[in-house]
Simulated scan of single mutants.
Amino acid sequence: MAIVNPKPIDLRPRGDPDQQHMKYDRNYSNSKMAMLERARAIIRQEAAALEILSNRIDEHVCSLADYILSSTGIVVVCGIGKSRLVGEKISAILTSTGTRSITLDPVDALHGDIGRVRAGDVIIALSNSGETAELIHFIRAVRQLPVTVAAITGGANSSLAQVADFVVDIGPMQEACALGLTPTTSTIAMAAVGDALALILQERRGFTRQDFARLHPGGSLGWELMRVRDLMWPLEAVPVFGLDTPLSLALLSMCRAPRKLGVGAVLSERSKVVGILIAESLGRLVDCGATPDLNDPVKRHMQQPLTVISAHAFLDQAVQIFRQHEIEQLPVHDDQERFVGLISRQDVLKLRPK
């Protein structure tokens, strides 16, 4: 028996297609506006909670900061569930701003990882309710060591607060969730307290832009804080000559240099750069049929530098000079204007974030 393909069922709405389309678009638009207003309301609610928190926290956060500054141990941040994720963020901010920190899962700690904790460490425990069983079990177990415990919690009279040395009370938080259950406002409050603590410590330590650059060598943050001295070819890597050095000796010196840069610096008697000798430029002369006299002094073949840059300058300043003058190498000097190295356009552009 032949199989007949059934007629496709028409699922399109009945009636005027244009009017139906307008109806669905209107419903979608109304739904979209409702969602947008709800999103804004959530953000307003969380912002209002942070404003209340800013007035609630007291000198306990200062006492905790002072204790961490005087401590020889590390800061161990722990929590369960969403609080653990907030703890990872707090620990990362602490670490990147000069305060040594790790995170520790209380459940893993109860099964061997408690060995990561050492005498003198500061434990920061996160729990909105202050009644998280695994966390409290861990705190009681770690008390066998001489450690200090700080609680960031919404339960000032909770079990966690009672076993802590420092308590930062974020107060009762109404979650932004319509059910009042999803950790939202409370986790933002914990993260804000962590930010405040980390930045207080950063400022009290005198943590500088240079310190920040040392801990953030990669990405745009590291780039913005890197200086010319961090990327330049140092003096010992660059062949240097006097104005009257024979071209033959200069080229030989460039060939024997540990790093074959193809570039040498011509210095005055006061170690101030007065010219750059570039092997590629000499090669172009040969290609054009001209043969440089190897007995010539290098001053006849050097290129006078259009400008120089300080070793303390930021890399962005070097980029601006390279673009302005369309040069490939830039001499670097110290505070006494003595030559200390060269920085290459290619090296700078290679490292610069896209």
Rank of each mutant, 00 (worst) to 15 (best):
M190V: 13
R40V: 10
A311K: 12
V149P: 03
I276T: 00
K82T: 02
L160Q: 06
R12F: 06
F212I: 04
E326P: 05
R14H: 05
Y24K: 14
G262N: 07
R38K: 15
I343H: 04
V163R: 00
L252G: 11
K299D: 11
G112E: 02
I3N: 06
P239Q: 14
Y28H: 12
H325R: 09
G242A: 15
A178G: 11
H333C: 14
E46Y: 03
E88N: 04
S281L: 10
I114A: 07
L249Q: 15
Q324C: 11
P234F: 08
S248N: 09
S29R: 15
V61L: 15
M254K: 14
S159M: 09
S281A: 12
P239V: 14
N5C: 07
L201S: 00
Q324D: 12
V266I: 15
T184W: 08
G120T: 02
P183W: 04
R338F: 08
E236W: 11
V308N: 05
G275A: 01
E280S: 13
F322C: 14
C255I: 09
G112K: 07
S310H: 05
L349M: 13
D347Q: 08
K32S: 10
L243Y: 13
V273T: 12
L221F: 07
G171K: 13
T184M: 14
L11W: 14
I139K: 00
V332Q: 12
T153K: 06
A150L: 15
W233C: 11
I74K: 15
A92G: 07
M22L: 14
H21A: 13
D195K: 05
V147M: 01
E224G: 07
Q346A: 13
V76Y: 01
A150Q: 14
S91H: 03
L231A: 11
A290W: 00
I90K: 00
M35A: 15
L85T: 04
S127G: 07
V228P: 03
